[in-house]
Every structure is written in structure tokens, then in C-alpha cells.
């Protein structure tokens, strides 16, 4: 495995290129592009992106993890591209760079939280994307969510007591702490459910492979099948891989949870060892 620090593209983005040893490199395999999560720089939460890139190199894949303009070590972009278009524009610039320097012609994109969002929108716009992985992707509450969220509390007197306390006396300590921290600049905007459903459907029709990891860090997700049940017409349970780790934080801070994710993606990535672009059967 070889890692190289670089500055690339018209916006001078800072990234790390991780390449496999020549003897394990997969010819014609897609390259992986990993996107920032909020304001966290390219190493990722808990250094997860570093470990993912190295894991993928062991499997023969090249990976570029980089900082969007204004994030991590990349400078603020000076051209006129609107902020809302930078995710997609700069991810495509990363892919262009990989094509020019490594010859890669297809890509797998992914990230956590806002990185997941950027990867999703890039996948919709760029036909070179053949795989999408997301940690805590856009998700939507289902009847199953509400059943799990509220039913246990309806029958638990302790939950009632807590609810009343919170309502009449907000935790002053917690409020004060909230004010003390600098807030991230990224504000997540959740698209309408039908927009995401249409997008996922078009990706499946294109043969884009999908992997989702949901943690317990999102208030809107609370059971394994929720993502599939939110989009019943897509049959995501069969046509994608969905992992839910009920004990995991949003930042995947549990060491054992990190191993689950890395093991999942290692196995999931093996499908890209041979070129494939067939639609995922509906």
C-alpha cells in the first residue's frame, strides 16, 4: 500500500491518495472517493476514513479521500460556484483527477452524514458512479419507527416521569453547555422522501450498488428494516445492503462498531473486483 499527499483540481483541494500494492491491484476496478463529514477533515470521524482507505487498498482498490474547499486543509474556493453545488462539483473534480492520474473510469463514492448526502447527489448526477455507501443517510420515519419509539414509553411509568420533568424544567446545565461550543457550519437539509426514493430508484436502475449503515445517533432511525420499509417499492432489503447498529453513535466511536463497518465494506467492495454495470434486479 502507498499513500501520497496531494493538492489537485482547480480549487487546490488537499487529499490523500491510497493505492494498493501492484501485486494486489485490481485492473479496471472502480476507484473509491470518500467525502468529508461536516467540518471533520479527511481522516474522518474516529479516523474511520483512513482505516477504510487502507482496508480497500488491501482488497486492490485505489481511494482518494479529500477535503472540500473551506473544510480541513483545503482553502476556500475562489471561483463563482455556489456553495450548494460544491459537493457535487468537487467530488467530480476528484473523480476527474483520478481518471487523469490512475486511469480509473468508474467510481464508488460515500461518506458519513453530510458526506453521505454529497455522495448521493453526486451519484445521481454522474454516470461514472457504480457504487454508493452511506453512513446515516437521509432516513424517514415509518409506522414501525413510531411503534418502537413511543410504544415502550406508553407502558413505562419512568418514561412518563422523565417526560414531565423535561417539559417543566429544561436541564439548565445542558443548555449552558450547548451555548459554549462553536457550531458546525454545515446544516443538513433533508429532502422530501419521494425525492430520495426517486433517486435511489434511478440508481438501482443504473446498476449502482448500495450499502447503508445506520447508527443510533440519528433520532429518526430505530430499527434495521426501517430504510427498506420507508421505500417499499424499491425492495431495498433485497437490492441493497442495510446495516443497523443500535448501540452505535453517529460518529461510530465504538471500536467494535468500526470493525463491523470496515468488514462490511471490505466484503461489499469485492463485487467491484470485476467490471459490472447490470441493473440490480427489481
Amino acid at each position: 500500500m502507498r499513500e501520497r499527499a496531494l493538492v489537485f483540481g482547480p480549487a487546490n483541494l488537499v487529499g490523500i491518495l491510497t493505492q494498493p500494492d501492484p501485486e494486489v491491484a485490481l485492473p479496471d476496478a472502480p476507484a473509491f472517493v470518500i467525502l468529508n463529514s461536516g467540518i471533520l477533515h479527511r481522516v474522518g470521524a474516529s479516523r474511520l476514513y483512513v482505516r477504510l482507505a487502507r482496508t480497500l487498498a488491501q482488497e486492490g482498490f485505489t481511494t482518494l479521500r479529500f477535503d472540500f474547499s473551506g473544510v480541513g486543509d483545503s482553502e476556500v474556493r475562489k471561483d463563482a460556484i455556489p456553495v450548494e453545488e460544491r459537493f457535487v462539483t468537487e467530488t467530480r473534480e476528484a473523480m476527474d483527477y483520478l481518471t487523469a492520474t490512475t486511469g480509473a473510469s468508474s467510481f464508488v463514492v460515500g461518506g458519513l452524514c453530510s458526506g453521505a448526502d454529497g455522495a448521493f447527489f453526486t451519484s445521481l448526477e454522474d454516470q461514472r458512479v457504480v457504487g454508493l455507501w452511506q453512513i446515516d443517510a437521509f432516513c424517514y420515519r415509518t409506522p414501525g419507527y413510531y411503534r418502537r419509539r413511543y410504544l415502550p414509553k406508553l407502558v413505562d411509568p419512568r418514561a412518563w416521569a422523565h417526560s414531565i420533568k423535561v417539559r417543566v424544567a429544561p436541564d439548565a446545565e445542558e443548555e449552558r453547555d450547548e451555548e459554549q461550543f462553536v457550531k458546525p457550519e454545515y446544516r443538513r437539509i433533508i429532502p422530501p422522501q419521494e425525492v430520495v426514493g426517486d433517486g435511489l430508484g434511478s440508481l438501482l436502475d443504473r446498476g449502482v450498488a448500495l450499502y447503508f449503515l445506520f447508527t443510533d445517533g440519528l433520532e429518526d432511525y430505530n430499527y434495521a428494516e426501517q430504510h427498506a420499509e420507508a421505500f417499499p417499492e424499491l425492495d431495498l432489503g433485497r437490492r441493497s445492503e442495510i446495516r443497523y447498529i443500535p448501540e452505535s453513535t453517529h460518529m461510530v466511536t465504538g471500536l467494535e462498531h468500526q470493525e463491523v463497518f470496515l468488514s462490511d465494506v471490505r466484503r461489499w467492495a469485492r463485487r467491484f473486483g470485476a467490471a459490472r454495470r447490470e441493473p440490480v434486479p427489481a
Binding site: G38, I39, A45, F181, V182, P184, G217, T249, M251
Partner: peptide, 12 residues
Amino acid sequence: PGSWSEVDPFGD
């Protein structure tokens, strides 16, 4: 304000 050892669940 703030403390280095405190952790924000969203990586602030």
C-alpha cells in the same frame, strides 16, 4: 468556553 476533553456527538 468549552473543554478539550468534552466530546460533541456530531464532531463539532
